[in-house]
Design a protein around this nucleic acid. Sequence first.
DNA 1: TGAATGGCCGACAGAAACGGTCGTATACTA
DNA 2: TAGTATACGACCGTTTCTGTCGGCCATTCA
Lengths: 152, 152
Amino acid sequence: MLKLTKKADYGLMALKYLAEHPEIPALSAKDVADAYGIPAQLLAKVLQRLTKTGLLRSHAGMNGGYALARDARQISAFEVIHAIDGPFFITSCTKGAKACELTPSCTIKEPLARVNDTIAGVLKSISIQDLAEHEHPAAHGSGPHGLVALTL
Amino acid sequence: MLKLTKKADYGLMALKYLAEHPEIPALSAKDVADAYGIPAQLLAKVLQRLTKTGLLRSHAGMNGGYALARDARQISAFEVIHAIDGPFFITSCTKGAKACELTPSCTIKEPLARVNDTIAGVLKSISIQDLAEHEHPAAHGSGPHGLVALTL
DNA sequence: TGAATGGCCGACAGAAACGGTCGTATACTA
DNA sequence: TAGTATACGACCGTTTCTGTCGGCCATTCA
């Protein structure tokens, strides 16, 4: 029911954590996992995936670990979720090129696709930096978020 | 990954179908299921749930079936999804009263809760009627949809 | 050079959610 | 009372998700 997976949650949490500690050159998966009390090996896989998609940089060996590949402002929640959970679609049967297998069934899909785009837009407008500054409830003018158009 | 269940899809499709045939006093679950080529018994359960939550009216016996309990404009996609899939939350661990079980873990949840509200707002702004009129890509001024505020 | 640290990767097992079916009881109409 | 249709619960197979295990590779440093 419109829920993020735990992996995506973990990924967002980890990136936020990295954004909050810019002074440390690299944090290991275990460091972050311990900080939040989440399974280290699972987090490691999530971080590896984020590395593969270019959101993180990794460094092996002593004092190695992960670091943001870009400024926290330049990484959107959408990218993180997309990297971990894959492309998302509101509707169940919209997967890639081929449409619904059944008849001319899904006349519903068209309007919902727009909802999908709207949600994606919302997630794209939120950066890791925004998550790190979780104190101010109101928008503060730094970025595209504020109003999102919904054209149905 | 932010996906509706098939049941929710079926529910939306069925309501849309009912909205498109206002002249018929009641349509059976089988009628709708046949129209879309979806399992009749499954649809029946979905419709029963929608009846229980007051979105539909049912009538047993010959020429019985289901009908919208309200005008199609007064039923939002949110209500339908909520009735079928239950309350939805973007984040995995936000369930009702009790927060995350782990430490002060989920500092992430707070900002995402706002995203959640935004998405809910979008879904609330879409009526079954909107789904039935799936032809016009642009907003046409009938209803609250058009712009949705996102205050992060 | 070799041991310690830490990332990388595939396979897999347990648990939960989802999709769908069956059987039966109940309500209404004719 | 026969037929149609909803109501409801139990159940099962499949998929997805979560988490773990094992082994391999890269880097650093003593």
